[in-house]
């Protein structure tokens, strides 16, 4: 049987169950506000958002692989390209681009010009240091962990801090070889 062609982000998005983005945006906003009240420090909130995102990412990758028909990506470059073109469209309905590769092919930027998480959002002055969308960096790190790529994800540009786009830097730290849970029978 010939392999099924990978599906585009648009095709998947058109077929998944979708909900009003405002519910998602306002729920996320309410969670961030509550975390700021409970944790008080912006840095602590950043850590918690990253942890929440990581826990979400390790589960979303399963749905992504199940629905996208993506076969094994051969390298980090191909992986980030698929995340940007298919993953962001499939889940958030927006397109991301990959740019700023280094010479080794182990570090790049994912750029978002549109982001449903920040509709209606303004940061007050006492929230300096908060990375409002830090849950996204956790999601990406968690998803990549599940396909054996240890990464470090950091924010380079943030619209809520006055930049014109969101830019995430994704750096591959280690490619973990796959370990099988069984040994070959002699």
């Amino acid at each position: 049987m010939p392999p099924v062609a990978p599906r585009s982000g648009d095709a998947i998005f058109a077929n998944v169950e979708r909900v009003n983005a405002e519910l998602f945006t306002l729920t996320y906003g309410a969670i961030v506000r509550q975390l700021l009240t409970d944790l008080e420090e912006a840095e602590e909130v950043n850590k918690q958002l990253d942890q929440m995102g990581y826990n979400i990412g390790i589960r979303l990758i399963d749905e992504f692989l199940a629905k996208s028909n993506v076969s094994r990506c051969n390298d980090f470059r191909e992986t980030t390209d698929v995340i940007a073109k298919v993953g962001f469209k499939m889940f958030l309905g927006v397109t991301a681009s990959v740019t700023n590769w280094d010479a080794d092919g182990t570090c790049c930027s994912i750029v978002l010009e549109d982001n449903p998480l920040v509709d209606f959002v303004e940061l007050p002055d006492n929230c300096q240091g908060l990375y409002y969308c830090n849950i996204l960096s956790g999601v990406i790190r968690g998803a990549l962990d599940m396909v054996s790529m240890k990464t470090e994800v950091t924010w380079l540009r943030d619209v809520l801090r006055g930049d014109d786009v969101f830019e995430l830097q994704v750096k591959l730290l280690k490619h973990v070889p796959e370990e099988y849970p069984y040994k070959d029978d002699e």
Partner: peptide, 21 residues
């Protein structure tokens, strides 16, 4: 056209919020 996101985004966010608290 009203902006939409995948239902998984909301489901995941709610699950993780409850787990967090």
């Amino acid at each position: 056209m009203v902006r939409e996101v995948s239902e998984s985004c909301v489901d995941s966010l709610l699950t993780e919020m409850v787990a967090c608290y």
